[in-house]
Amino acid sequence: MATVQVSEAEKVYVMHGVRDDLRVDGRGCEDYRHMEIETDVVSNTDGSAKVSLGHTDILVGIKAEIGKPRPMVPDEGYLEFFVDCSANATPEFEGRGGEELGVELSNTLYKVFNNRHSLDLRSLCICPGEHCWVLYVDVLLLQCDGNLFDAMSIAIKAALFNTRIPKVHISEDEEGVKEIELSDDPYDCMRLNVENVPCIVTLCKIAHRHVVDATLQEKACSVASLLISVTHKGMVTCVRKLGRGSLDPDSIFEMTETGKRVGKALHAPLMELLQKEESLGKKRQKVGFLA
């Protein structure tokens, strides 16, 4: 991730602040920055979303294609993740610099979605063993200001909510050759159930306490963070320790508990906002990239 340099005195200031539950910008240890979410920003995709969390901007586009199901699971579709850290975000990502970070982010996404309940993959099947829907989820990092994982997971959930997969109709003629027909009506599509899609919460350990939604400066003051992805029911799908330092087992248990609590509380406002946005329909003022 893009790093800023901080002096020793600044680190001490930030640490004492976190200890007193007053961060540099006045937030408490468990407060998120101002977040703005918008879906359906890119018209060529089947689903898209843009999230800005502070100065971090993430754009997610989802395209659904018809492909062959994996040999071990013939009756399910699957998702493919790709994260691109463009040099727009910060000059450190120029050339191949952003590739490492992009690979780390996509590997984490694979792990987060590596369970049966996040997304009902069986609904993506068209014809068992022959055709299925493959969802290509492409994440683009436009601006980087810390806390990439959280913003990315929220954007993916919003984009999946917005995804409209056209309904297909299999017709078989006399010789047994199967033909796929897309329905003519552009509004006749299938939506995904994103109730169980998890959200990632990154907790940074600074001195003896941990903070949610750390800025780049706060990240430079911490040596270890815990990434935890939580569904709306409170089930944990992925836990990772990031950073160069080690964690005490008690801190891990504390951080897991906080992460679960914060993660669970993220889902309700997000679904409410997405549904409000959808109910606005045509009247919605499309902002896109102008703000």
Binding site: G28, E30, H34, M35, A291
Partner: peptide, 12 residues
């Protein structure tokens, strides 16, 4: 814990 999510608006 406070989370502030909202739809973006064009700021004049």
């Amino acid at each position: 814990m406070a989370v502030d999510m909202r739809l973006p608006t064009v700021r004049k």
